[in-house]
């Protein structure tokens, strides 16, 4: 019988939804093969989060260097622990931490890795993962060898279930970092100008805006709609809008009454931040853009023509 290890992430003393989701799946897979589910967290602050985790065993990696995320220390500590446990399968969230550590740990340990997983099912004896690749345009079906393969799962791929377990908890000491030194943690800055998470109507622009000068068209449209301008990550990385306006995995999660996605392709990292909007209207001149799969309404118009046309219609209406 093997061990399925879930590398958990916790926040304010509770396991993240993404981690609970992994435990749910680990139990499901373990149930059929008689495997043991083992959860691993790092830092004293995470101890409480595993007390009721859906697992038989829990390991808390402790030490001075693990209270904040530290790529070198976390990687070495986890890889070392896995060498000892010799798991059949390792599940991590496809979060910043999973993206950072998953591949490194797999390469270090000489085992395979599957990234961007959205489904994990048993097909007879074979564990089969589905991964979302090519910006969400293609899916890939992969056989997962149960030889310690590291699988990183996109958060929200399936629902976590409530647990009533109380795992046996043991502590393991983390190694001391030797090359990377964490200087300071910088807390998230609240939006200096507007809070896009509070807006009812978001006029959200992506790389299709092409040029910062065209942002004026989005501003005018937002004004006519009494909405707020938000954007995808490349618009922020280009320095065209402040980071507080960014929607997505590494930006804000928004749930407005209307999300107008203009020139946004709908990459998984963007969808993560807006797919629960009440109404999504997408305009993108590529009819195959993945954004149309989450939008209720869509159009293949040129946004540089649409924005002024729509603004004008709204202004006419007011008279």
């Amino acid at each position: 019988m093997g061990r399925i290890v879930v590398i958990g992430e916790s926040h304010r003393g509770a396991l993240s939804d993404a981690s609970r989701e992994l435990l749910t799946k680990a139990q499901e897979i373990a149930g059929t093969g008689g495997d043991t589910v083992s959860v691993v967290v790092l830092g004293e602050a995470a101890r409480d989060s595993v007390k009721a985790a859906s697992a038989k065993e829990a390991t808390v990696i402790v030490g001075p260097g693990v209270d904040e995320y530290h790529p070198e220390t976390y990687e070495r500590a986890i890889a070392h622990l896995l060498d000892e446990i010799q798991p059949s399968l390792v599940l991590m969230g496809n979060t910043t931490m999973g993206m950072d550590l998953g591949a490194a740990i797999a390469a270090r340990r000489g085992v395979a890795m599957v990234a961007y997983c959205t489904a994990l099912v048993l097909d007879g004896e074979t564990l089969v993962a589905t991964s979302q690749v090519y910006g969400g345009k293609l899916a890939s079906e992969i056989e997962v060898p149960k030889t310690g393969t590291v699988v990183t799962v996109i958060p929200g791929s399936w629902a976590p279930v409530q647990s009533s377990d109380s795992p046996d908890i043991r502590d393991v000491e983390a190694p001391v970092p030797s090359r990377l030194e964490l200087l300071k943690v910088i807390e998230a800055e609240p939006g200096q100008d507007v809070d896009i998470t509070k807006a009812d109507i978001l006029v959200s622009v992506g790389r299709g805006i092409e040029d910062p000068d065209n942002l004026e068209l989005a501003d005018q449209l937002a004004e006519a709609l009494h909405g707020v301008v938000s954007c995808s990550r490349p618009v922020v990385d280009s320095g065209w809008l402040p980071r507080s306006r960014q929607v997505g995995k590494s930006g804000q999660t928004v749930k407005p009454k209307v999300y107008l996605a203009l020139g946004i392709s709908g990459a998984p990292e963007h969808l993560q931040g807006m797919k629960d909007a009440e109404l999504i209207i997408a305009v993108n001149n590529d009819e195959r853009a993945p954004i149309f799969e989450v939008a209720q309404y869509g159009a293949t118009a040129d946004i540089l023509e649409l924005m002024p046309a729509l603004t004008e219609k709204l202004q006419e209406r007011v008279g």
Binding site: F292, E293, A295, G298, A299, T300, A301, L310
Partner: peptide
């Protein structure tokens, strides 16, 4: 799912959105 599509003409699309 897939969005209900309104075509590529800016004016028509603007009318639908309104």
């Amino acid at each position: 799912g897939h969005a209900e599509m309104w075509g590529d003409d800016a004016d028509t699309v603007a009318e639908h959105i309104v």
